[in-house]
Design a protein around this nucleic acid. Structure first.
Ligand code: ZN
Ligand code: ZN
Length: 388
DNA sequence: GCGATCGGACTCTCAAGGTT
DNA sequence: ACCTTGAGAGTCCGATCGCC
């Protein structure tokens, strides 16, 4: 809430943008500012002064100035309902651009196939087609149905429920309009990888290794491709990974070929191939599925929140399992100075802690995941990570 | 040096919108 | 039902000024 401005004489200075990257005076290296944390509700005094408040009542600032008796929560407006917002922009066009890029510039074998079987007209046709898609083999969406908040200062996990998403402001690539892509599909030139994308990729690698460590898998690579599920048809061709970055994971062959009658893409999941969300909007080349054993695999992917999921078949997560995972998560992410002396800790755990520390990786929460089937057994364990 | 002031950058929430 | 988007609402950084 903005207080009524009182006159401030000769305020002509331009405020320093907080987003501006500063440099360390001695090293010259850029100093990364930690994300500012706000209280949910500032007290009336701090709000009026535009100063930092805290959760306590009276708050520290009011105590400091001896005005504790007037320290109370400020009122918050109720949010307006019924406001029309207009159509949202879609980010899924990245997928099509990525695919186009692939067809134009990668592996000649695939290129030949796609040129032959996937002329621009059929791609356009498939983009606008609206054939119903059967449900995917499992639900892959993170729903923070049950969550525990992680607070290292409080000594680990505290039990309150997390709010819904905590958005994390990392955008892999600039959003474009689908209409625009459809209209301009052929004239588009491939775009070089962006810095942000590279950073996201690095973070994904950290997530993957952390995930392996938490599960005690010690980074074991999947030994063979297995069909996770037979396949399911997609309206659009699946996204293509960047083969420069990920040369060992060719796309599943049949996914490149639209079915001759349905014109749908039969997408077969292979563990070493990036897993994609059933939701078109979530398709992202930086998704990955890693098989650990017959019943356990890891999905790492990124939407607005970096997260990864432990998936178990059959879909049963016992309370003991949940607790166990919580303990593990704490063990691998609670990074303290003297952690390395912890008894019985293996090198892998220490490594993971170092990685977390270096990358500023913080556990945000872990959730037992409630699937689209409503209440009942949890399908998926999800860990939310926050790169601060 | 300290408190008051406040522009605007930054953060967070949550209903609308889009998709299955 | 699920899940992202993004505008609105709110927080508070940091620059400036006046006072002692
Ligand atoms: Zn306060
Ligand atoms: Zn207060």
């Amino acid at each position: 809430m903005r207080s009524i401005p009182t006159k401030r004489s000769a305020d002509k200075a331009s405020p320093t943008p907080a987003s501006l990257t500063r440099r360390d005076a001695t090293t010259g290296l850029p100093v990364v500012k930690p994300k500012r944390v706000q209280v949910k509700n500032a007290c009336v005094n701090c709000q009026k002064a535009c100063k930092k408040c805290d959760e306590a009542r009276p708050c520290a600032r009011c105590v400091k100035f001896g005005i504790q008796e007037t320290c109370r929560d400020s009122e918050r407006k109720e949010r307006n309902r019924g406001l029309k917002r207009g159509a949202y922009k879609r980010k899924s066009s990245e997928v099509y651009e990525s695919r186009l890029h692939f067809h134009k510039h990668h592996d000649s074998h695939y290129e030949k196939q796609s040129k032959h079987l996937l002329p621009p007209s059929s791609l356009k046709a498939s983009l606008s087609q609206s054939t119903p898609t059967p449900p995917p083999p499992f639900s892959q969406s993170p729903q923070l149905a049950m969550a525990a908040e992680f607070d290292p200062r409080a000594g680990g996990l505290v039990t309150p429920i997390l709010p819904a998403y905590h958005h994390i402001y990392i955008t892999p690539a600039g959003p474009t309009d689908v209409d625009c892509v459809e209209d301009d599909l052929e004239s588009r030139s491939p775009t070089p990888p962006k810095d942000d994308e590279e950073k996201d990729w690095n973070k994904l690698q950290v997530l993957s290794s952390l995930c392996s460590a938490v599960l005690g898998n010690k980074g074991k690579e999947p030994t063979q491709d297995r069909h996770f599920a037979s396949s399911y048809p997609l309206k659009h061709p699946p996204p293509i990974p960047d083969l420069h970055q990920d040369p060992v994971s060719p796309p599943p062959f049949d996914s490149l070929l639209p079915h001759p009658f349905t014109n749908l893409y039969n997408y077969t999941y292979l563990p070493s191939y990036p897993l994609h969300h059933n939701h078109d909007l979530h398709h992202h080349p930086l998704s990955r599925l890693t098989h650990l054993d017959d019943n356990l695999f890891i999905k790492t992917h990124m939407t607005s929140l970096h997260h990864m999921s432990f998936l178990r078949r059959p879909w049963e997560v016992s309370e003991e399992g949940y607790d166990e995972a919580t303990v593990l998560m704490n063990r691998y992410t609670e990074v303290g100075e003297d952690d390395h002396e912890e008894e019985g800790e293996d090198n892998s755990a220490i490594e993971q802690k170092d990685v977390c520390k270096r990358e500023g990786l913080k556990v945000m929460g872990m959730n037992a995941f409630a699937s689209g089937r409503g209440s009942g057994p949890r399908d998926e364990w999800t860990m939310g990570f926050n790169f601060s």
